[in-house]
Amino acid sequence: MRALLQRVLEAKVVVDDEITGEIGPGLLVFLGLGKEDTLEKGQKLLDKILKYRCFDDEQGKMGWNVAQAGGGLLLVSQFTLMAQTQKGLRPDFGPAMAPVQAQALYDALVAYAQSQFSNVQTGIFAADMKVHLINDGPVTFNLEVE
């Protein structure tokens, strides 16, 4: 399981010309699910994301998490994060979880995130999403859990 976090001033997901999720300042999280991933692993990753200190505190240091900064969380499923890219010129998506299982796990992780944090927005699983963002910093982190 991989998460690409981007600290944003604002972000939104548009599907078929309709906004499906939108936040002001906060974290845009692209989430990739692999074949071996579980709900427990995902909960551990989401807990880490929600506690991850990547927002400036009153001293101007990265000392605050998304809740302390008063931000939102926009979760977007992105199987391409699981691609193997070490060889050749075409990504290999073999490590990605199959769509049916991935959607069930993604939905469970969204429900978990919503139970832990009040401002959670999402894209639509497997949709042709247009993601708009204004990256803050830019500040971008790649998180994984074992």
Rank of each mutant, 00 (worst) to 15 (best):
R2Y: 15
L4Y: 10
L9F: 08
A11R: 06
K12W: 01
K12R: 15
K12C: 04
V15R: 05
D17I: 00
D17P: 03
E18T: 01
E18H: 08
E18R: 12
G21S: 05
I23P: 08
G26V: 03
G26S: 08
L27W: 06
L27I: 12
L28K: 05
V29Q: 06
F30N: 09
G32S: 10
G32N: 11
G32I: 01
K35F: 03
K35R: 15
T38G: 08
L39W: 02
K41Y: 06
G42H: 08
G42L: 11
Q43V: 03
K44I: 09
K44R: 15
L46W: 03
L46Q: 08
K48T: 14
L50A: 05
K51F: 04
Y52P: 00
R53M: 03
R53K: 15
C54V: 15
G60D: 03
M62C: 04
M62P: 00
G63W: 06
N65E: 07
Q68L: 13
G70V: 05
G71L: 12
G71D: 05
G71N: 10
G72M: 04
G72T: 01
G72I: 01
L74F: 01
L75C: 08
L75M: 10
S77Y: 01
S77M: 02
F79K: 06
F79P: 01
T80I: 10
T80L: 09
L81G: 11
M82S: 11
Q86W: 05
K87P: 06
K87R: 13
G88A: 11
L89G: 13
R90H: 12
R90D: 06
P91M: 14
D92V: 13
D92S: 14
F93R: 10
G94M: 09
A96Q: 06
A102F: 07
A102G: 11
Q103F: 03
A104N: 08
Y106S: 00
A108V: 02
L109G: 02
V110G: 03
A111H: 07
Y112F: 12
A113E: 10
A113F: 09
F117E: 02
S118A: 15
S118F: 03
S118P: 00
N119R: 14
V120N: 00
T122P: 00
G123R: 07
I124N: 11
I124S: 12
F125Y: 13
F125P: 00
F125H: 04
F125R: 06
A127D: 10
D128T: 14
D128S: 15
D128K: 14
M129S: 11
V131H: 07
V131F: 03
H132M: 12
H132G: 07
N135C: 11
P138G: 02
V139W: 07
V139F: 08
T140E: 13
T140L: 10
T140A: 11
N142R: 13
E144T: 15
V145L: 12
V145K: 13
V145F: 09
V145C: 11
E146D: 15
E146N: 14
